[in-house]
Design a protein around this nucleic acid. Structure first.
Length: 799
RNA sequence: GGGAGCUUAGCUCAGUUGGUAGAGCAUCUGCCUUACAAGCAGAGGGUCACAGGUUCGAGUCCUGUAGCUCCCACCA
C-alpha cells in the first residue's frame, strides 16, 4: 500500500542507491540489441548549473527510452578536465601566478583541483537520477586518454595529415597561445577609422590610407592599390613613406583591394588581419612583428614599444594628430574576434605550430555532415554552414602547460622530428627521451616539444575513448558508428565538427549516425548561465532537487523542444510538482483496488476497452516522437492520456471498483484489468522522465507481477494494435462533460442527482452509449436516460 | 552581406503528413465529490507578426515585408 504522501527527499536517494547496488543500468556488450551514446564529458572547471542538468537529462531520457525498448544501452560518462579551461580555472580559484610556479607543480595542482570537481559533478548527475555509467567514467587527462590521443597524433602524422608549419596562426595575447578558428567569437565593437597621409618617395604627393589599426604602422610592409585604379596607377611601383617611422614601402597593385572601402588604398601590415596574412604569402612580403606574443608592442614600434595594443593605438592616434598626418577620423562599429575563453581580441602571429589538415578535406567533412541525421533537422545546415566557412587548418598546438603533450622531440643536431613509439605511450617528452638515436644523423641529443595539444584534439576522440573502456583496444573503430551524439547547439561547429573530422581521417567512417542537439537552460532574464559563479536568485541543481525533487527537475528539463533554449522559471517546476502529486494519488487509488489481484485478460466493458485503445494510440505516438528524439512532444502525448485517465476514466471506473455488489464482479474485474494495465503502461512511459517515483509505485505492486527488479529493467507495455471504440468512448466523455457543465452552471455539487437526460445521436453512437449506460448513470448520478435518434449530437438535461 | 530559428490567448509555450485554434499559469464562477482543496468541475479570452499566392479549404505549403535571437562574414 502506498503511503498517503510520497516523500521524495528520502525516496529518491533510496532508489539511487538501489540502482547503484543492483547495477541496474549495466551495459551488456553481448546483448542482441544495443544502443550506444557518445556522452559529452562536461568541462568540470567551473560551477555546475541547471543548464547542465537540462541538456544531460534530455540524453538520459533517451538512454532510458532505448532501455525500455529492450536494448542494452552503452551510456558512458567522462570528465573533461584537460587543457586551458582547467588552467584558467585553477589560476583563478587557487590564485596562482604562472610565472611564480613551475610546470610540474602547476600540473599537480590542476590534477588535484579537478579531482575534487569530479565528485561535485558526479554527485549532481547521480542525484538527477542519470543512468550513465559513472563507475567507469573516463577523464580527458588520464594516462589512458593521453595514450589514445597521442596515438591519434602519431597515426595522423604518419598518414601525412598533420604537419608542423611556421605560418600565420590565430593567437590569443592574453592566454599567450595559438588557438583554433572554432575558439574565436565575433563581437561588435566600437572603434575609429583613421585617415592618414602617407608620403611618396621623391614626390610631394600624398597617399591617403584608412586604417582601424594605426598601431601597426611599424609593421607596415607595403601599400596596395587596385590595378584598375586610374587615379593611382602612376604610383604603382613607387615607394610610399610611412608616417612616424619614415620607412619606405613598395606600392603594389592587388585585385583584392576593394576600391569602395576606406580610401581605396590599403596598408598591409604583418599582421593586422587574415587578409594581411593572405597577402603576405601571395606577395612574399617580409614579416615584421609589431606585436609580441604577450600582446605588447615590440621594439620596432619605437616610442610605443612595451605598450599594450589598445594603449598604443590611442597614443599613436594622438601622435599622428600632432604631426598633422591624421586628416580625419570617424567612429565606426565593426566585428572583432575575441578568444572565447578570455574575450581578448585575437592577433595573428607567426610561430611554428602543429596543424591537422582540414582544408583539403572540406568536401569529405561536408558530405559526412550530410549523411549524419541531425535532430532537429535544421541543425544540419548550421553544421554545413560552418564547414563552408572554414578558412584555417586546425592548429592543435597550445603554448600552455596543462594538456596532453605532443609525443615529439626534435634532434638537436639535424632538427629532425622524432616521434615516440606507440608502445611507450603516453609519454611526456619533457620527462623522457627517445629510445633511439636520431635516424637521420644518429644524434643523441633531443629537444622536447613543450607545447601541449588542443583539448579538442582529444575530445574529438570520445567515441574511441568510450569504446576503450569496454574493449581496451585504445584507438580503435570498435562501436563505430555509434548511435547517438547528444550535445547543445554551441557544440555543432566545435565538438561535432572535430569528431566527424577525426573519424574520417582515421577510419573514413561516421563517428555516429545521429546527433541530438539540445538548447540551453538560460537564466530567467535570458542570460547564459555563468560557469564562474552562481548569480543571485539563480536556482541551482541541488536546491532544485531539494525543493522540487529530481523527478520534477527532470520533468522541467525534458519538457522542452529540441534545440531550443528555455528560461529557468520556477513556475514551470510547479507544474511538475503537480503532475508528480497527481501521479502518486492516481496510482495510490488504482493500486488500492489491486490487492490480491493478478491481472489477467477478461471480457472488457466498453469504457475499459476505450481507455486501453487510447493507451495504444498514445503509446504509438509516444514512440514515434522519441524516434526523432522529441522527448518533450512525447511527454505531452503521455500527459494527455494521463489526465484523460484521471479526469474521465477513473471517475467512470471507480463506481464499479467500489461497488461490485451493484455492478457485478465481472464489471469490477474488467475495470481492474484496464486500470492496472493502463497505469502500468503509463508508469513505464513516465519512468524515462521521472525514474524515482515511478520506481516507487512499480515496486509496490508491479515488480512482483512482472517478476522484475526494477521498472527500468522492464520493457514498455505493448497492448496491441487495432483500436476500435475510441470515438464512442470520447462521446461518452462528452455526455459526462455536458452534465458536469450543467451542474457547474447551476451551482450544483457533482454528486447531486440529475432526474433525466435526453441524448440525441446517430444509431451507431447510440448503440455504444447504451452499452455504457451503467457507467454514465453512475458517474453523473442520473436517474433516467432517454435516447433519440438524430444526426446531430446533443444532450438535454432535466434537474 | 550569407545561413538558421522565432513571431499563436494577459504570460510561458505546444500544434506530425493542410480540414471548424490547444496546454499550463493568470482571471472569473461553482463544488468538502469515499485518490487528490497546493484539489475537482466549468467559463471567458486569439482576424495564429504583416501582405500577397496555391487550394474547395492554410497557423500548417510558396513568395515577399517587418521585428527579435543565434551562427558566419565584414576589420582598408
Amino acid at each position: 500500500m502506498l503511503e498517503k504522501r510520497y516523500d521524495f527527499k528520502t525516496r529518491e536517494k533510496h532508489w539511487q542507491d538501489y540502482w547503484h547496488e543492483h547495477n541496474t543500468y549495466k551495459f551488456d556488450e553481448n546483448a542482441e540489441s544495443k544502443f550506444t551514446i557518445d556522452t559529452p564529458p562536461p568541462t568540470i572547471s567551473g560551477v555546475i548549473h541547471l543548464g547542465h542538468v537540462f541538456s544531460y537529462t534530455q540524453t538520459d531520457v533517451i538512454a532510458r527510452h532505448q532501455r525500455m525498448l529492450g536494448k542494452s544501452v552503452f551510456y558512458p560518462f567522462g570528465y573533461d578536465d584537460n587543457g586551458l579551461p582547467t588552467e584558467r580555472y585553477v589560476i583563478k580559484e587557487q590564485k596562482v601566478r604562472l610565472n611564480e610556479t613551475n610546470r610540474s607543480d602547476f600540473i599537480k595542482l590542476c590534477l588535484e583541483t579537478t579531482e575534487k570537481m569530479k565528485d561535485v559533478y558526479r554527485d549532481v548527475f547521480t542525484r538527477a537520477g542519470h543512468s550513465s555509467d559513472f563507475d567507469s567514467a573516463y577523464s580527458s587527462i588520464s594516462p589512458r586518454t593521453q595514450a589514445i590521443s597521442q596515438r591519434s597524433f602519431i597515426e595522423l602524422y604518419n598518414a601525412g595529415e598533420i604537419e608542423r608549419r611556421n605560418s600565420a596562426t590565430l593567437w590569443c595575447p592574453e592566454c599567450r597561445t595559438a588557438i583554433a578558428q572554432s575558439e574565436i567569437e565575433t563581437v561588435e565593437m566600437d572603434s575609429t577609422m583613421n585617415y592618414l597621409n602617407f608620403g611618396i618617395l621623391d614626390s610631394d604627393e600624398k597617399l591617403q590610407i584608412a586604417t582601424t589599426r594605426p598601431e601597426l604602422l611599424c609593421a607596415c610592409v607595403c601599400v596596395f592599390v587596385h590595378p584598375d585604379d586610374e587615379k593611382r596607377a602612376h604610383l604603382v611601383g613607387k615607394k610610399a613613406i610611412t608616417p612616424i617611422y619614415n620607412v619606405e614601402v613598395p606600392i603594389l597593385a592587388n585585385p583584392d583591394v576593394d576600391r569602395e572601402k576606406g580610401t581605396g588604398a590599403v596598408m598591409c601590415c604583418t599582421f593586422g588581419d587574415e587578409a594581411d596574412a593572405k597577402w603576405q604569402k601571395e606577395f612574399n612580403l617580409p614579416v615584421l612583428e609589431g606585436i609580441g606574443h604577450n600582446g605588447r608592442m615590440t621594439e620596432i614600434a619605437g616610442e610605443f614599444a612595451g605598450q599594450k595594443v589598445t594603449e598604443a593605438r590611442a597614443n599613436i592616434i594622438e601622435k599622428l594628430k600632432e604631426i598633422g598626418v591624421l586628416y580625419d577620423t570617424k567612429p565606426i562599429t565593426h566585428a572583432v574576434s575575441p578568444h572565447e575563453r578570455c574575450s581578448t581580441p585575437i592577433e595573428i602571429m607567426v610561430k611554428p605550430q602543429w596543424f591537422i589538415k582540414l582544408l583539403e578535406h572540406k568536401d569529405e567533412i561536408y558530405k559526412a555532415g550530410e549523411e549524419v541525421n541531425w535532430y532537429p533537422e535544421y541543425t544540419k545546415k548550421r553544421f554545413l554552414n560552418w564547414v563552408e566557412g572554414l578558412k584555417w587548418d586546425w592548429c592543435i598546438s597550445r603554448q600552455r602547460f596543462f594538456g596532453i603533450p605532443f609525443p615529439v622531440w626534435y634532434c638537436k643536431d639535424c632538427g629532425a622530428t622524432i616521434l615516440a613509439d606507440i608502445d611507450d605511450l603516453p609519454v611526456d617528452p619533457t620527462v623522457t627521451q627517445p629510445k633511439h638515436e636520431c635516424p637521420h644523423c644518429y644524434g643523441k641529443s633531443f629537444i622536447p616539444e613543450t607545447d601541449v595539444m588542443d583539448t579538442w584534439a582529444t575530445s574529438s576522440l570520445t567515441p574511441q575513448i568510450c569504446a576503450d573502456t569496454l574493449t581496451h583496444k585504445g584507438l580503435d573503430d570498435a562501436h563505430l558508428p555509434m548511435d547517438l551524439r547528444p550535445n547543445a547547439h554551441d557544440n555543432i561547429r566545435v565538438w561535432d565538427f572535430y569528431t566527424i573530422a577525426k573519424s574520417l581521417l582515421h577510419y573514413k567512417k561516421l563517428p555516429w549516425n545521429n546527433v541530438m542537439v539540445s538548447g540551453w537552460g538560460l537564466s530567467a532574464t535570458g542570460d547564459k548561465l555563468s560557469k564562474s559563479k552562481t548569480s543571485k536568485g539563480e536556482l541551482t541543481p541541488l536546491v532544485a532537487f531539494e525543493k522540487y525533487s529530481a523527478d520534477v527537475t527532470r520533468y522541467w528539463a525534458s519538457n522542452a523542444t529540441l534545440g531550443k533554449d528555455v528560461f529557468i522559471q520556477e513556475e514551470e517546476f510547479n507544474n511538475g510538482s503537480k503532475l508528480m502529486q497527481k501521479l502518486w494519488n492516481a496510482s495510490r487509488f488504482v493500486l488500492s483496488f489491486l490487492e490480491g489481484y493478478t491481472p489477467k485478460k477478461c471480457e472488457l466493458l466498453p469504457m475499459d476497452q476505450w481507455i486501453i485503445d487510447t493507451y495504444r494510440i498514445t503509446f504509438k505516438n509516444f514512440k514515434k516522437y522519441l524516434e526523432k528524439f522529441e522527448m518533450g512532444l512525447a511527454l505531452n502525448e503521455l500527459e494527455k492520456l494521463f489526465w484523460n485517465f484521471c479526469d474521465n476514466y477513473i471517475e467512470i471506473a471507480k463506481n464499479r471498483l467500489y461497488k461490485p455488489e451493484i455492478y457485478g464482479e465481472k464489471a469490477k474485474e474488467s475495470a481492474q484489468y484496464a486500470s492496472s494495465m493502463v497505469l502500468l503502461g503509463m508508469l513505464k512511459m513516465f519512468s524515462i522522465y521521472m525514474p524515482h517515483i515511478t520506481e516507487e509505485i512499480y515496486q509496490d505492486y508491479y515488480a512482483k507481477i512482472e517478476g522484475c527488479d526494477s521498472i527500468h529493467l522492464s520493457k514498455y507495455l505493448d497492448l496491441g494494435d487495432a483500436p476500435s471504440v475510441v470515438f464512442g468512448g470520447y462521446r461518452v466523455c462528452d455526455i459526462v462533460g455536458e452534465v458536469r457543465k450543467f451542474k457547474s452552471q447551476n451551482n450544483m455539487s457533482m454528486k447531486d442527482e440529475i432526474a433525466k437526460i435526453v441524448v440525441k445521436d446517430d444509431d451507431r453512437n447510440l448503440d455504444f452509449i447504451k452499452s455504457c449506460l451503467d457507467d454514465i448513470k453512475a458517474v453523473c448520478n442520473i436517474k433516467d436516460v432517454e435516447f433519440i435518434k438524430s444526426n446531430n449530437f446533443s444532450v438535454d438535461i432535466e434537474k
